[in-house]
Every structure is written in structure tokens, then in C-alpha cells.
Design a protein around this nucleic acid. Structure first.
Lengths: 146, 146
DNA sequence: TGATATTATATCGCGTGCGATACATTATGT
DNA sequence: ACATAATGTATCGCACGCGATATAATATCA
């Protein structure tokens, strides 16, 4: 018979390797992002901005699956670094319009090498990467549609 | 031709869904672990202890892919909660021997329901769960053997 | 219109994670 | 034996991530 506590063994968890790999990824990015004066979380905020050009805090929170209590201080730091600007929406003054500064836009070119540097550090096959991606988004999408 | 900045799009990252799912998992566990007076990280520490019965900080750090500056305060909190005890190894006084208290041992029975509660919240097929597990450990093992 | 609800952002406190560093103990080499 | 290195743990400072709560602006509805 199976051991009573088998379900509580670390090796039998799916949550733990996700947690550990997530920490590992942040560590891997650090040396590359240090050169851009960005943390990992700041980097993904910048990604959204590079793509959207202009956005607001609410959109960022949803795109990154974060809460305002995480994003508000992040935006403050990015503004202090001179990468973004925050202005009030004229039509709805609750709305915080976030735009890239010149330095913020220029950062995108310097960031171009990051994805390939990171890719070299992980050795998954194309199929593995795609399957991992698919399963993770299945979990995220499921959560979003609740 | 492919857009110049395609590699910097959030949707083209593998790192981001791992990060987002990891955060999601911690949120999912919270209500169940609150009843045990454990955080997620404290929970995985307890898992190692339930399995090993006795261990030291170094073993914990390696098992959980964490550094001592994370684990030391964790152990302090678990001791304050009365779940573990810390004593010096007689043979090597650098070594911190960590053991479960009676309350710590009893907690394992109360934790037995957690894995199944969590499993119900995620809807992966058996194959998807196994493949996810395999790929994540491939990444972790690769890192360990460096 | 005016009370109430909703929405978007911000603040507070706590618990991680981590790089850098310090400290005490043991091991090592001459 | 004794200076030096290695090892195991602890401390410090910073940046998240989040639940709870607050605040300001807009929407809703009697």
C-alpha cells in the first residue's frame, strides 16, 4: 500500500518545481538586466510599455497578473529612473496614463539581446518549450475565466 | 519579415507564464495554509522535515533551491510557531540540527488534505501534469549539474 | 440632485528571495 | 602548532507580491 503521507512529499508536488524554476529564472536574468538598470519585474513592465506605447496601471496589472500594490511602487521606481512618465487622464482623472520617455524607448534596443542570451542558458527542445508554454497558459487562462 | 522587437513581446516569453503561474500557485495555497498557520515557503520547509524527520539548514537550502539568507529567517519563524527546534550538532558546532516538535509532527496530519484541495483547483490532464513536471525538473537538474 | 456604489490608484505591514557580507567553527597545509 | 582556507549559519539592505485598507474621481439611481 502507498505510504500515507506520499502526497506530502516534495518530489510529488507540481507546485514546487514551478516555484523553484521561477526563482531560478529571476536569478538568470539578473546579470543581463543589471546592465539595463532593471529588475525582472520592471523588465516585464517595460515589455508591456514597449509593445503598447502607452497604457495605464489597470492594464498593466491585468497583463502581468499583479495587483496595484505591487505595480504602483514599480511605476514609481521606473519613473525615478527616467524610463516612464505618469500623467492624469484628462477625461477620467482616476486613470493614470503611462508613457515611455526617450530613455525608456531607447532601452528597447539595448534589451534586444536579452531574450537570446537567456535562451542560450536553457536547453529545452522546441517541442518542450512549446508544450511548457501551452500548459502554463492553460493554467493562466483557466484562472482568468473565473 | 518578422517585427524587429518580436522577441521582446510578453506573449513570446516563456519566463513570464512561469512567473505568473508561480505567483498564482502561492495565492491558491494561501487559504488552505492559513489554517495551518503556514506560508507557502514555510509549507515546503515542513514537507522536507516531515520526510526527513531531522535535517540541517544546508540540506534545506539545497532541497528547496534557496539561500541561507532566505531559510534562516524562515526557520526562526517556524521555531517561534513551535513547529521545529534548532540545536547545535555536538560533533560540528557549525551544523544546525533541525527537528520537529510534537506540534510540528501533528501538523502533517492536518496538512494531508491540502494536496487534494489544490489538485481540484487545477485542471490538467494526467499527461499534461507529468509532462510539465518532467520539463521543469529537466531545467532544475540542468542547473544543479553545473 | 444627492446619497451610494464603483473604479483606479495609493498606502501599510508582513513575508519572502537574494547579493553582499560577517561571524564562528572546523579543516588544511607547512 | 598555527596561519589560512573552507564551511555553515546569520545579518543587512533592497525589491517584490499580496491582503487589507484608504483615497479620490466617476457612475448610478432613486
Amino acid at each position: 500500500m502507498k505510504e500515507k503521507y506520499a502526497a506530502l512529499r516534495l518530489k510529488n508536488q507540481l507546485c514546487f518545481p514551478i516555484y523553484a524554476v521561477s526563482n531560478m529564472i529571476t536569478r538568470k536574468y539578473k546579470p543581463y538586466l543589471d546592465e539595463l538598470d532593471l529588475t525582472y519585474t520592471q523588465y516585464i513592465v517595460m515589455m508591456v510599455l514597449w509593445e503598447q506605447g502607452q497604457t495605464n496601471e489597470k492594464f498593466l496589472c491585468e497583463a502581468l497578473c499583479l495587483k496595484s500594490n505591487t505595480v504602483t511602487p514599480l511605476l514609481k521606481k521606473l519613473r525615478d529612473k527616467g524610463y516612464i512618465e505618469k500623467t492624469k487622464d484628462k477625461d477620467d482623472e482616476r486613470n493614470l496614463v503611462i508613457t515611455l520617455t526617450k530613455a525608456g524607448k531607447e532601452l528597447q534596443d539595448r534589451a534586444l539581446s536579452v531574450p537570446e542570451c537567456i535562451a542560450k542558458e536553457f536547453h529545452l527542445t522546441q517541442d518542450e518549450a512549446m508544450e511548457l508554454y501551452r500548459i502554463l497558459y492553460k493554467l493562466l487562462d483557466e484562472e482568468k475565466n473565473k
